[in-house]
Design a protein around this nucleic acid. Structure first.
Lengths: 112, 112
DNA sequence: CAGCATCCCAACCGATACTG
DNA sequence: CAGTATCGGTTGGGATGCTG
């Protein structure tokens, strides 16, 4: 359970799932789309998602090689609760940031 | 946005919010309930949740000291999307674990 | 009881270089 | 193009000891 939450809660995992929701993408397309992810992390995260059955990996034995990643039905079903969480964050982001400012402000005041 | 997801997606944060959903708890009660969390991580995570406005911290100046942690309305509203995610994991846990076994099995087979 | 400070090891992750 | 391998800095987090 914790392991699964670790996968799901992972920053890159979520971004990859989001980006695949519109259709399959190639390795390099993902890397270009996600912005900030290193090749290493993309590989590692994709392997993890594949292992958990969230994405499928299809190799086209052409030259140059071409590999497509797509959401499985399981991965697709994950989008729903994840989107709910994303929506919640967007709705409450302002409140959270204000709370942070207030909290940090107190600390400064207390330090003086 | 990523920072918030980091908070929310954090393993301990979720567990704490879950455990507080039935009512306020003291520091030591949380530590006993959560099982596996170190004092350090409990303190740190609670501070983070407090900073983000998800939990409130109430000190009773008794002897011995008593500190109660409770969900704020904001923290309480977070339970809804988080529970949705938790339910999803529970529902699909079997499928995920089987996928893992299959994946790991392939690797072993390929190595031989 | 609640919690801060310190030390210290392990895991993570980015950068780089190399292969089929 | 789509990776694997390796190195090194950074961070996470446990263990311990000390305070109000």
């Amino acid at each position: 359970m914790r392991e699964v939450l670790a996968r799901v809660g992972d920053k890159w995992s979520i971004l990859i799932v989001m980006n695949l929701s519109d259709g399959p993408l190639r390795f390099s397309e993902l890397q270009r789309t996600i912005d900030g992810i290193s090749q290493r992390m993309l590989t590692l995260t994709l392997r993890g998602l594949e292992r958990d059955g969230f994405v499928s990996r299809t190799v086209y034995p052409t030259n140059p090689p071409k590999v497509e990643y797509a959401l499985t039905p399981l991965g697709d079903s994950l989008r729903c609760p994840v989107n709910a969480l994303g929506d919640w964050v967007q709705k409450n982001l302002a409140a959270i940031e204000e709370s942070r400012r207030a909290f940090d402000g107190e600390k400064v005041a207390a330090a003086e």
